[in-house]
Nucleic acid binder design. Sequence first.
DNA 1: TTTAATGCAAAAGATTTGCAACATG
DNA 2: CATGTTGCAAATCTTTTGCATTAAA
Lengths: 150, 150
Amino acid sequence: MSIEKQEVEQRMNHFQAVCRDEGIKLTHQRMEIFREVAQSGDHPDADQIFQRVRNRMPTVSLDTVYRTLWLLNDLGLVVTLGFSRERARFDANLKEHHHFVCERCGFTRDFYSEALDNIRLPESVDSLGQIGATHVEVRGVCRECLGTGA
Amino acid sequence: MSIEKQEVEQRMNHFQAVCRDEGIKLTHQRMEIFREVAQSGDHPDADQIFQRVRNRMPTVSLDTVYRTLWLLNDLGLVVTLGFSRERARFDANLKEHHHFVCERCGFTRDFYSEALDNIRLPESVDSLGQIGATHVEVRGVCRECLGTGA
DNA sequence: TTTAATGCAAAAGATTTGCAACATG
DNA sequence: CATGTTGCAAATCTTTTGCATTAAA
């Protein structure tokens, strides 16, 4: 599944504008790496991106892919799924619940809400497959990081 | 932040019952590792669990912690946060969106919903900190994995 | 006693870093 | 031309595995 050409062009333009504004050099590698993410609808990981870019650019290196992806992330040009940069975290709470996650320090807290447990999903989701648990993740900044510490 | 004693006891009992049912041996290590997750409200990762268990049980090894955590996960006694077992995945879609994730193959697809973008969070969340983006993750099984392939 | 689980040490994987060569602005 | 960026190789960090020993049922 890939993104429409027109949308990809828009994303490329935005990327170039941001790089110019930030004084970040527009290298061949960065262009190809960003393009790859921009045109992929399947949320690839670093290694998949590396493999795909390498088809067009055989000399690119994996470490450049990593450096570039995190740069794009810091620039807000790309987003990571879930709690991505972290390792697996475990939870013995089996009741249906949701999470608040602090974007700065990783602090994570469960919360409950019957309303959220019962949210209606759009019909488009039904066509993707069989639906299991639905889980809400709220990103934010915790009180501690805000300096609003009790 | 730790879980109430009574709740921990309940979780321990459930854990022991499941192990018995499944013919899984109740070792000292498993008890301590599960207890650690059961009484932690902060969603620790494998290494944190290892460090904490080691205080009480200095001979436990990190590989046992890993083996046990994934066993608990397979038994449904513990849950992982987000897309945990995977590596970081990237997305250049900056529009507000949500995800459907196949639990079997990892297939992930964006979907949109104004209703979900505007869900009301319970007030308890406000007290945790400043709220940023809210994101819904639907877990399920994709059509391909269901054998309902188009 | 039988079988599964542990600890150790080593292997495998993933990600990051120092540095000289190179390309961009 | 000056500086930031790359590729390489090595280092680091995380997670997994093989195997002899130990412990649970």
